[in-house]
Amino acid sequence: MNKIKFILNVSLAAVMLLLMDPRSFYGLGFHEWAGLIIGLFFLLHKALNWTWIKKVTMGFIKRCPRRARLNYVLDVLLLVGMFLMIFSGIAIAKTIDFSWLNLGGSHMFWRVMHTSSSYITLALFGIHLGLHWKWVVQRFNFKKDKKWQKKLAS
């Protein structure tokens, strides 16, 4: 399970970075489709950590340690950031037709919203990774431990 989580997280970070510049990878088409798909992957990331979310939500005020609370607030901010990013992206989409949604507001407003929310969300992603760095290091140690166990067994 941890391996799946790790691969998902690494690919999420990599795709997020590629999406930061719409001209960089395979152009706007890739940017818009991958932007929509990353939203689904983000939800999958949340679903994989559902036990933790449930636990912290239940005891947010009284029982939770400060660090878990900080992580929770950061996760909520990330969720809001992702929502704004995808929603504003839908409003300014060019290769996918979302005109039937009639979102209103000026094009420039949504554009600025899209840029700002993505910049803020990327920063929050960095902080999120920093706070979970021990988990990342543990994933590498886990591999080492397995090799060590195999050596011991042989």
């Binding site: 920063a123 960095g126 902080i127 920093g130 706070l131």
Partner: peptide, 8 residues
């Protein structure tokens, strides 16, 4: 991204 991660 790395700056924010390392900083944190």
């Amino acid at each position: 991204f790395c700056l924010f991660t390392v900083g944190t």
